[in-house]
Amino acid sequence: MSVLIVIPARYASVRYPGKALVPLRGATGQEKSLIQRSWDAAQAVGGVDRVVIATDDHRIRTEAEGFGAEVVMTSATCRNGTERCAEALDALGGAFDIVVNLQGDAPLTPPWFVEDLIAALNAHPIAEMATPVLRCDGRALGGFLDDRRAGRVGATTAVFGAEGKALYFSKEVIPHVADGAWDDHTVTPVFHHVGVYAYRPAALAAYARWTPGPLEQLEGLEQLRFLERDHPVQCVEVDARGQQFWELNNPEDVTRIERILGELGMA
């Protein structure tokens, strides 16, 4: 199967304008932009035929081409990364079996997260799309709860049924848990939704034709459009293998991500 990774990126982020170009310092003190670190993460994924950055902003295009990335220019009317992926796929001629949306604010995404998604679609031919979920330990859950208490938009959580079919995604911490019930290293019943998606091209094309529903608009979560249209979303539990994962949603996340880059020894 042919696999395309699209990294959607925009400059006019509502919560953090210009974040795609924010420099992040690695273990050696070297700075790379957020979009370059996301590109590096995509390059580490096995079994991929092509990687492109999809943007509507020439500042991001200039930065991306400067470090050797292939760029597809998309329209400014794309409302989220999934719509931008759909437009990029169309611009490339659509000749791929699986399209992966590796969001441009998730540079710490381990390659095996994406590889597990690709394997899940290969193993389940009727599945339309898949997304990874990561069981939280007490340390991660504590960070989520701290963000909510401080009024910061933090990580997304997911709840799903016994066969992995998604029930809901939220910026709130769901299911409800008692604060302080888990220490740093114990497992919890909360799953962190990792912002990566793998789609069949037909599902991606259909998504672009649908209008956003009220839940998507309230939560600001693009994957809810599938659930509101009664199209199943397959959650794939992944193993962090001891590696911390975090997305860049707020300016405060820069320090946290740089610390993790240092711990991982990433230049």
Rank of each mutant, 00 (worst) to 15 (best):
E128S: 13
D184H: 08
D147W: 02
A27G: 07
G164L: 06
A41G: 13
V72K: 03
I60N: 01
N122T: 04
A119H: 02
A203W: 08
P125V: 00
S2P: 07
W182H: 12
L215T: 14
M266Q: 10
V72L: 11
G265F: 03
R241H: 14
G265E: 11
E70I: 01
V238F: 07
V51W: 01
V52P: 08
E228L: 11
R10T: 04
P23L: 12
T28V: 06
Q217F: 02
A20W: 03
L224A: 10
G213S: 03
E228D: 12
R139Y: 12
N249F: 04
V153T: 11
G151E: 09
K171D: 01
D56N: 12
V72W: 00
S75P: 06
A203M: 12
C235I: 06
E31F: 02
E219N: 08
G29C: 07
K171L: 01
P175W: 05
G104R: 11
Q30W: 05
I257K: 05
L134Y: 04
G262N: 11
A20G: 13
H58P: 09
F67R: 15
A166K: 12
E216G: 06
R241I: 00
P23M: 10
N80L: 05
S170Q: 10
A120E: 14
F191L: 09
I53M: 06
I126M: 05
A54K: 12
E83S: 13
P107V: 09
R61V: 03
T211R: 14
Q30Y: 08
F160Q: 11
T62Q: 11
F96L: 02
F191D: 00
I98D: 04
V173P: 08
D239Q: 03
L221A: 13
V133F: 00
V3F: 04
G242H: 09
T131C: 09
N250H: 08
M266C: 07
G26Q: 15
L102G: 07
A106H: 12
A64H: 08
A166V: 15
D230V: 10
N80M: 05
E87K: 05
G143E: 10
E219K: 13
A95G: 04
A91V: 00
M73E: 15
V71L: 10
M73P: 01
F96E: 04
I53L: 12
L204T: 11
A95F: 02
A203N: 14
